[in-house]
């Protein structure tokens, strides 16, 4: 018995041939060169990340630079090593949904922190004896 799936999923099944499927020997050789270029880029970006961390810059710009470089490196890994550059739509949808949930989770944490400050500010205005 096969797994039943909603009809909407059939629309996600695009008919492109992915990198991992139909590849000639020449294609594979070309991809191997790309992998080496990506490796070199990742190594250089790692060195840049470390060097930037030794610069005397304040926390927020340092955080943004480090995250930007990490995101660039992760994108290279995902696109070329994980073949997302030619992957099917259904995989991209899976990633998009998990990305949305991830952002929602971060928003909950940061929201809770902001809420703590609001609560702390409100407590100051409460009459004495009402603070839990």
């Amino acid at each position: 018995m096969d797994l039943p799936l909603p009809d909407d999923l059939f629309d996600l099944a695009d008919k492109r041939v992915t990198m991992a499927e139909e590849m000639t020997l020449e294609d594979v050789r070309k991809h191997m060169k790309v992998y080496l270029w990506v490796f070199t880029s990742l190594a250089i970006l790692t060195v840049v990340t470390v060097l930037v961390s030794y610069l005397s810059i304040s926390f927020t710009p340092a955080l943004l630079i480090a995250l930007a470089i990490a995101t660039l490196k992760a994108t290279l890994v995902a696109l070329y090593f994980m073949h997302l550059v030619s992957e099917r739509q259904v995989i991209l949808w899976v990633l998009l949904v998990s990305g949305i949930f991830l952002i929602a989770m971060f928003a909950l944490f940061i929201g809770a922190h902001a809420d703590q400050e609001t609560i702390a500010a409100l407590i100051k205005f409460l009459p004495t004896g009402h603070v839990a």
């Binding site: 799936l5 999923l9 059939f10 996600l12 099944a13 695009d14 008919k15 992915t18 991992a20 099917r88 739509q89 259904v90 995989i91 899976v94 990633l95 949904v97 998990s98 990305g99 949930f101 991830l102 989770m105 971060f106 909950l108 944490f109």
Partner: peptide, 29 residues
């Protein structure tokens, strides 16, 4: 598969990795 356009193993590992994103994401948060 004709419905998803990918084989079961690949869809399965990507769904697993999506759950891993949430696992590490929770700790990063």
């Amino acid at each position: 598969r004709p419905d998803t356009g990918v084989n079961n193993a690949k869809l399965g590992i990507w769904l697993f990795l999506a759950s891993e994103v949430m696992l590490f994401g929770g700790l990063f948060a």
